[in-house]
Write a protein that binds this DNA or RNA. Structure first.
Length: 423
RNA sequence: AGAGGAGUGGCAGAGUGGUCGAAUGCGGCGGUCUUGAAAACCGUUGUACCGCGAGGUACCGGGGGUUCGAAUCCCUCCUCCUCUGCCA
């Protein structure tokens, strides 16, 4: 959520940024927010002076009662009734304005970083660089959805039986490959200085709001109604929320965490013929990296996180490219996002396997995640996160790219984890 | 899940209707003393909003209520502890 103070003091920059996102009626919405804020201030002023008066009278009554001057006290009491009802009305008015303002602010996305290209769809994303080469597959090479059947390592039909579409069952070497990748990614993240956490995979409403999934993506999360909890769409939610309502001390920064969790996404409306096999699932595994740092350090941190993701893909020997997301494709909460895509050679398609974002203060403002600077001034921190990495599409690419007529080769770095070098 | 108890500032812990944003201790910060440190002593030490400022308002787990006045009384929710039950 943007700070209202940001909207007031940097209105032009906000307008320019939101236009890049094609956010409709920018000026109108911002003016409305500013007007509501003014209304909020004035209603607080009248409420406060009203309360101050009432407090003074109450004290006076207290003093008189103690002095035994009952009658004088009673006389003053009669004066308070009016103040009381006025206070109630003023408080309601103030709450109402605050709610309206908050509801409006919830609808405003983050201001993109100046380097974010304008554009409408993923077609307009900027390819920053492409690393590695596409493997040359043998004549009979097939997509991963055929390979998983051929080698009996991932079973979609069984998943459909016990749960539904998009919930595959990993079997034998498929299950082992998945576990190996999780361990490999966690080990690499820990080696890069991210401390490991295992968070809950259901979160409450407050957590969903704080990282921005609510109310924006309400329909995309699975909701556990009898407990009013949400299944996490990404470990970003619980891990970032570890720092909700926290004022950290400067020497704790930067905070770096990694965590492995399953992720759940309803993917309402995004299913189609182009989505096959492991390309899109309702439940998948992911290792996430999260960072909290000072404003002046956050873009360096973003770079570091991107380099970490790149190193993973290089170690796995996968061709990949990095995209700078355009204004139309960047997430609601993000200021700058780099997507990583691996080339899936049999599908002849680029698959997104990581998204690394800097949210600047957008999440921190909702989280109330702050620190005290050297002048003892309390400042919002910046939050960042990235996938490192999401498993299913990595598995798809490994299977497709490393297939040979007599088996699938396992990348060398994984062999110590899998215990086998071929499927 | 049932019965009982409890949630107060960074921590510990007082306060059960009136000048309480809240005693006291510890911790933190600043200072005196010291060659330096420790000890001792003195001072200081929450957050948010409004206001140019003086200052004001709110916050004692969350929400609601009673009252001129609530940390204190009532209702409700949440969390923790103890006992009983159940269980991976």
């Amino acid at each position: 959520m943007l700070q209202i103070s940001q909207i007031v003091t940097e209105k032009e920059r906000v307008i320019e940024g939101l236009k890049k996102r094609n956010f409709p009626n920018v000026e109108q919405v911002l003016d409305q927010a500013i007007a509501l804020d003014e209304k909020r201030k004035s209603s607080q002023q009248s409420l406060d002076s009203n309360l101050a008066e009432a407090n003074a009278l109450a004290k006076e009554i207290g003093g008189l009662m103690k002095a035994g001057k009952r009658e004088e006290a009673e006389a003053i009491k009669s004066k308070t009734a009016e103040l009381k009802s006025a206070s109630k009305e003023l408080a309601e008015a103030k709450d109402q304005v605050e709610k309206e303002l908050l509801a409006l602010l919830y609808t405003i996305p983050n201001v993109p970083h100046p380097s974010v290209p304008s554009g409408n769809t993923d077609e307009d994303n900027e390819v920053v660089k492409t690393v590695g080469e596409a493997p040359k597959l043998h004549a009979g090479a097939v997509p991963h959805w055929d390979l998983i059947k051929q080698y009996d390592i991932i079973d979609f039909d069984l998943g459909i039986k016990i749960t539904g579409a998009g919930f595959p069952v990993y079997k034998g070497k498929g299950a082992r490959l998945q576990r190996s990748l999780v361990n490999f990614f966690l080990d690499e993240a820990v080696a890069a200085g991210f401390s490991e956490v295992q968070p809950p995979i259901m979160v409450n409403e407050a957590s969903g709001y704080a990282t921005g999934q609510l109310p924006d993506k309400e329909g995309q999360m699975y909701h556990v109604g009898n407990e009013n909890l949400y299944l996490i769409p990404t470990a970003e939610v619980p891990i970032t929320n570890l720092y909700r309502d926290v004022i950290v001390s400067e020497d704790q920064l930067p905070i770096k965490h990694t965590g492995f969790t399953p992720c759940f996404r309803r993917e309402a409306g995004s299913w189609g013929a182009h989505v096959r096999g492991l390309n899109r699932l309702h439940q998948f595994d992911k290792v996430e990296i999260v960072q909290v740092c000072k404003a002046e350090d956050s873009y360096k941190a973003l770079d570091d996180m991107c380099n970490h993701v790149a190193s993973l893909l290089e170690k796995l020997g996968l061709q990949y490219r990095i995209l700078r997301l355009c204004g139309g494709d960047i997430g609601f909460t993000s200021a700058l996002t780099f997507d990583f895509e691996v080339y899936s050679a049999a599908q002849e398609k680029w698959l997104e396997v990581s998204s690394v974002s800097n949210f600047e203060t957008f999440q921190a403002n909702r989280l109330k995640l702050r620190y005290k600077d050297e002048n003892k001034k309390i400042q919002l921190l910046h939050t960042l996160n990235g996938s490192a990495l999401a498993l299913p599409r990595i598995i798809a690419a490994i299977l497709e790219n490393n297939q040979t007529p007599d088996g699938i080769n396992i990348p060398e770095v994984l062999v110590p984890y899998t215990g086998f070098d071929k499927i």
